[in-house]
Amino acid sequence: MKHIVKIMALLVALSAIWISLLQTSVLPESYTWLLPLYSIVTLGCYGLLMVGVGLMRFPTCPQESLLLQEDIVEAKGFLKEKGVDVGSD
């Protein structure tokens, strides 16, 4: 099944629940009408929160850059000895 179909099915299911809520009036009608809006806002907040959290906890590795520099020096030394042209650049 194409992924878009899954997402559509999910949306249809949610709409069905919403409509049945409207019909049965378990909740006050004014609340029920605003539910889709709340859902969209919630989804947006979730997205922003995830981006924010991800940004704050973004794993960085400054030490790796230093280790790489050491590796480069080591590699250049070895390759130069073997006659590979790593001089320029």
């Binding site: 991800g54 794993p59 850059s65």
Partner: peptide, 10 residues
């Protein structure tokens, strides 16, 4: 890159 032990530099 996005789990512990992984990461990005630069």
């Amino acid at each position: 890159r996005y789990v512990s032990g992984g990461g990005v530099h630069g």
